[in-house]
């Protein structure tokens, strides 16, 4: 089963660039990446730029509306994601626990939809 591990956190609580905490977070991210690759479960994974770079779009009565900023103002933002291919939820959770942001944010684990035409 494929799962997306969505990384939500509050940028204010993230370790600051240049501090030892930041370095240890980055090396934990690196270790998590390596572990997922080594186990052959990593499908994809990216970090996102901050919400100040976000542009939102919706179509209202046929007209495209474009806005500066994210879809919803919340304290915790989507900051990145992994997609892993693993046998079950417990396996997905064990990889989610490797993501260092879990210590100050939340990792949401969601199965991807299965578009198998035979199913």
């Amino acid at each position: 089963m494929k799962y997306m591990l969505l990384i939500y956190n509050n940028p204010a609580e993230e370790p600051e660039y240049g501090t030892p905490e930041f370095d240890s977070m980055m090396s934990d991210f690196f270790a998590a990446n390596e572990k997922m690759k080594e186990d052959g479960v990593l499908v994809d994974g990216e970090g996102l730029q901050g919400i100040d770079t976000a542009t939102s779009l919706r179509i209202k009565s046929g007209k495209v509306e474009t806005m500066d900023g994210p879809f919803a103002e919340t304290r915790e933002h989507l900051g990145g994601y992994y997609i892993v291919n693993v046998p079950d939820l417990d396996a997905a959770l064990s990889y989610a626990a490797l993501i260092p942001s879990a210590k100050f944010g939340t990792i949401e684990v969601r199965p991807l939809m299965d578009y198998n035409p035979a199913g």
């Binding site: 089963m1 046998p87 079950d88 939820l89 417990d90 396996a91 997905a92 199965p111």
Partner: peptide
């Protein structure tokens, strides 16, 4: 079923 909770011993 949807979440993929396995029937396994942790």
């Amino acid at each position: 079923k949807a979440k993929g909770i396995g029937f396994s011993i942790p």
